[in-house]
Design a protein around this nucleic acid. Sequence first.
DNA 1: TCCAATACGTAGGGTTGCTACCTATAGCGA
DNA 2: TCGCTATAGGTAGCAACCCTACGTATTGGA
Lengths: 112, 112
Amino acid sequence: MRAEALKGHLDGLLLATLEDGPQHGYAVKEALRDATGGRLDLPTGTVYPALHRLERAGLIKGDWSVVGGRRRRTYELTEQGRRSLAGARDHWQEFAAVISAALGGGLWPATN
Amino acid sequence: MRAEALKGHLDGLLLATLEDGPQHGYAVKEALRDATGGRLDLPTGTVYPALHRLERAGLIKGDWSVVGGRRRRTYELTEQGRRSLAGARDHWQEFAAVISAALGGGLWPATN
DNA sequence: TCCAATACGTAGGGTTGCTACCTATAGCGA
DNA sequence: TCGCTATAGGTAGCAACCCTACGTATTGGA
């Protein structure tokens, strides 16, 4: 996975991993890796700042806790975050359709 | 179309529009707009610098000419550019699959 | 004792597309 | 003639954002 391709799509991915319940940052990173068969293994320097950004934007809400002697910041979606996730999915569908149409050479959007 | 979403995918789109024959910059911009039903209408400040970048990278080759009193720079794919386009298509397929898997909520890749 | 895994973080940089602006010609309508 | 639009090219500077490279700390196994 070329890295820079992710630009502008990361936020939706992070929100999606929080959809099924609260997670702490490190778990989000692992969930994303597992959901993609290891093909999307983000560095922590990408994940943590992005989560901070989402929290500042009011899309997620974090709380500190301590588990097994390690401090954790557990995040959950806000109502606004849930709406944003839905928007991100819509946007992705359109974006993918547009790129596929223009890039050509592919079977897209799977015409039948 | 959110703007930053395009990051890292523009080069492939430009190469794809040159696949069926040489085009000048302005025509590339219009071809892209038409191929996407107007949904991808790039500003010239995006297209021209990107073409310069591709030429510097050796993926396309440009030549000046004058048509109807207007100077044109006509670009065509190099052999390297053709390979790069193929790579961009492969990369896009994988990228789209990964994002779709992680983003969820969607019918992807259009299972039937 | 040392290292990996877990868990969090920041500083700085590089890439890249966009905004805003500029030049110039052809052609049309007022 | 004047002004506007379409065509055709260009640049400077900015902002977003993800990555690299670090740093801290704890737990637990080799």
